[in-house]
Amino acid sequence: MTSTPSEPRLYDVWLMWVEFPDHPGIGKPRPVVITEVDGDLVSGIVAKITGNTDWDEAGDVPLLDWKAEGLLKPSLVRCSQRFYFNRSELLQWFGRLSLRDAEHVNDGLEATLDIPPYRRSV
Results as ranks from 00 to 15, higher is better:
Val46Cys: 07
Arg82Lys: 12
Thr50Cys: 04
Leu15Lys: 09
Ser80Ile: 07
Ser80Val: 08
Leu71Lys: 09
Tyr118Thr: 03
Arg120Asp: 14
His23Glu: 14
Trp66Arg: 03
Leu97Arg: 03
Glu110Pro: 01
Pro29Cys: 05
Arg87Asp: 09
Leu90Cys: 04
His23Leu: 11
Val32Pro: 02
Thr2Cys: 03
Val32Ile: 14
Phe85Ile: 03
Phe85Val: 04
Arg96Leu: 05
Leu72Tyr: 10
Thr50Val: 12
His104Met: 15
Gln92Ala: 11
Thr2Phe: 06
Val13Thr: 06
Cys79Glu: 01
Ser3Ala: 14
Asp101Ser: 10
Ala47Trp: 00
Leu63Ser: 04
Val18Thr: 13
Pro29Ser: 10
Asp12Arg: 10
Arg100Glu: 14
Leu41Tyr: 09
Ser43Pro: 05
Leu10Glu: 13
Gln92Tyr: 09
Leu63Glu: 01
Gln81Ala: 12
Ile26Glu: 14
Ala58Arg: 10
Ser3Gln: 12
Leu10Ser: 10
Arg87Ala: 09
Arg78Cys: 12
Ile115Pro: 01
Glu69Ser: 15
Ala111Tyr: 02
Ala111His: 04
Ser80Gly: 15
Val42Gly: 10
Glu7Arg: 11
Leu64Ser: 10
Leu76Thr: 12
Trp93Gln: 05
Glu36Asn: 13
Glu57Leu: 13
Asn86Gly: 11
Ile49His: 02
Leu76Tyr: 00
Gly25Gln: 06
Asp101Lys: 05
Leu15Pro: 02
Trp17His: 10
Leu63Val: 07
Ser75Arg: 04
Leu76Ser: 02
Thr4Ser: 11
Leu76Lys: 08
Glu7Met: 07
Asn106Cys: 07
Leu99Lys: 13
Val77Thr: 04
Pro74Phe: 01
Asp12Ile: 11
Pro21Tyr: 00
Ile34Gln: 04
Pro117Ser: 05
Asp101Phe: 07
Glu69Val: 13
Cys79Gln: 02
Asp65Val: 04
Asn106Glu: 15
Phe94Leu: 15
Pro62Cys: 08
Leu113Asn: 08
Lys73Leu: 14
Ile115Ala: 02
Pro5Glu: 06
Arg9Lys: 15
Glu110Asp: 10
Asp65Ser: 13
Ala47Phe: 00
